[in-house]
Design a protein around this nucleic acid. Structure first.
Length: 216
DNA sequence: CTCCCGATAT
DNA sequence: ATATCAGGAG
């Protein structure tokens, strides 16, 4: 298992590799980020940004999403995939925002989690990026990197990963670290062909050492 | 656990 | 052809 000292070394190296890591979901207010993050489930952020470029011109407020038929919204986001669930959730969430929150996105992680289509990961992304509240969102990249390094057991839930990373990382660096791990996972420690051969973390990486041995 | 689902990389 | 993508709900 990875030690805390080794984890701190990893953060140092990953930070040097991706010093300007940031949120790649294009948005200009909390509501847009909430919608963009909901759309990003099982889909690349490049595809999300391609759709929201037009979507956010057409739909500015929660009322705008409720003013069209569900079929029209489905068509507007179809290329994203999972579009039926996502369209339904966006409309339900818009109605909830209007009825209960005056049309404003609440800056509260646990409250956001009760919204339709908004789980813990999406809520963490919104509060950290839109409101500056320290949070550690565990998506597919963060979970993969943490488990490859050997922070957790392979069967551990995303919540276990989240708690372990938060315990081992300075609170004021949670959001930064979150973005840097995502960039590391997306461009270096990739799902399909991870660049273990040129990885500074290889000497302490459980999965990396196993892979290098198997390859040659 | 299964289902939702189109676009892209491998 | 198959795997993966800033997951969430039933």
């Amino acid at each position: 298992m990875l030690t805390k000292k080794q984890w701190e070394f990893c953060l140092d190296e990953i930070g040097k590799m991706f010093p300007d890591a940031h949120c790649e979901l294009v948005h200009s207010n909390p509501f847009e980020l909430l919608v963009a993050t909901l759309l990003s489930a099982q889909c690349t952020d490049v595809l999300v940004n391609r759709v929201t470029a037009d979507l956010f011109q057409k739909y500015k407020k929660p009322e705008d999403y409720l003013a069209v038929d569900i079929e029209e919204l489905q068509t507007d986001i179809r290329s994203i995939g999972l579009y039926r669930n996502k369209a339904k959730n966006i409309q339900a969430l818009s109605a909830l925002l209007i009825e209960e929150f005056g049309g404003e996105v609440p800056a509260d992680r646990d409250l956001l989690t009760t919204f339709p289509g908004v789980g813990r990961k999406t809520a963490n992304v919104v509060v950290s990026n839109a409101f500056g509240i320290p949070a550690m969102a565990v998506d597919t990249h963060v979970e993969r990197v943490a488990k490859r390094l050997g922070m957790n057991r392979w069967k551990d839930s995303p919540l276990m990963v989240e708690e372990k990373i938060m315990r081992w990382t300075l609170r004021e660096r949670w959001t930064d670290t979150h973005h840097q791990i995502i960039f590391f996972g997306r461009y270096h420690c990739k799902a399909q062909n991870p660049a273990c051969g040129e990885c500074p973390l290889l000497p302490l990486c459980r999965e990396g050492k196993k892979r290098m041995k198997h390859v040659g």
